[in-house]
């Protein structure tokens, strides 16, 4: 369902972020992508949603060749994917509630669905009481939880999480990991980028390890080894 075929990525400024990366992720898998900061984790995830285009090779997600999509197909693909961005990417002029509701508005949900689902998912991440606040009045951890709520609310078939626990204390970290596992159990494919050793070692799931843009390990029950 997700295929990277000999993908290389060189950014405009000449930085080579990925070097001949190939892997395949099946429907319903839970895959962690690990590696030190700057090793290309976010780049892989950005290629999956078409935010970046591969310099060489091809990326397929849900049957789409991601580097060659019309505007409409891109919309379809992104509707299927829930993405938790490393830098949150909340809309600053929308409230917490509106940020989460936006995902549903985009996919054409009814008002009734929005009114039911948004409070529910906000409750899930423990932020219902901040529904009417704007992002810039939230702490880093709270913003991260809004980002998570936004990615989950439309019940995506693929959930991509870019260091979703980076701003959380260990208590919240385990809540989030449990949430990801739960979603995976419910049938979604989950891709998690992280450099949190404890998380990886506890998950006991497939791990793809990156070193300076190259895959150096791809193990079914991986541990965090660098």
């Amino acid at each position: 369902m997700i295929i990277f075929d000999k993908v290389s990525k060189v950014y405009k400024n000449g930085t080579q972020a990925l070097d001949n990366v190939s892997f395949e992720i099946k429907k319903g898998e839970f895959v962690s992508i690990v590696g030190q900061s700057g090793y290309g984790k976010s780049t892989i995830l950005k290629l999956m949603i078409g935010e970046e285009k591969p310099t060489e090779g091809r990326v397929f997600v849900s049957g789409y060749d991601v580097s060659d999509l019309t505007e409409k197909e891109l919309h379809q693909l992104r509707k299927e994917i829930g993405m938790i961005f490393q830098d949150f990417r909340l809309l600053p002029k929308k409230t917490v509630y509106e940020n989460v509701a936006f995902t549903l508005e985009v996919s054409g949900a009814t008002n009734k669905e929005i009114e039911e689902d948004v409070p529910q998912v906000l409750n899930l991440v423990g932020l219902l009481h901040k529904a009417d606040k704007f992002p810039n009045s939230l702490s880093g951890g709270e913003k991260q939880r809004v980002a998570i709520a936004r990615a989950l609310v439309d019940r995506p078939s693929i959930l991509i999480a870019d260091e979703p626990t980076g701003s959380l204390d260990s208590l919240n970290t385990w809540d989030v990991i449990r949430l990801l596992l739960k979603i995976n159990e419910l049938g979604a494919t989950v891709i998690l980028a992280t450099h949190n050793r404890e998380v990886i070692n506890m998950l006991n799931k497939r791990v793809i390890t990156l070193d300076r843009g190259k895959i150096i390990r791809d193990e079914q029950k991986g541990r965090y080894i660098l």
């Binding site: 935010e51 919309h75 992104r78 993405m83 809309l91 936006f102």
Partner: peptide, 16 residues
């Protein structure tokens, strides 16, 4: 421009 990018990335069509 950043907000426009975010909206696109969470799946909005150009007209939305």
């Amino acid at each position: 421009k950043d907000e426009i990018g975010i909206m696109k990335l969470v799946g909005a069509t150009n007209w939305f």
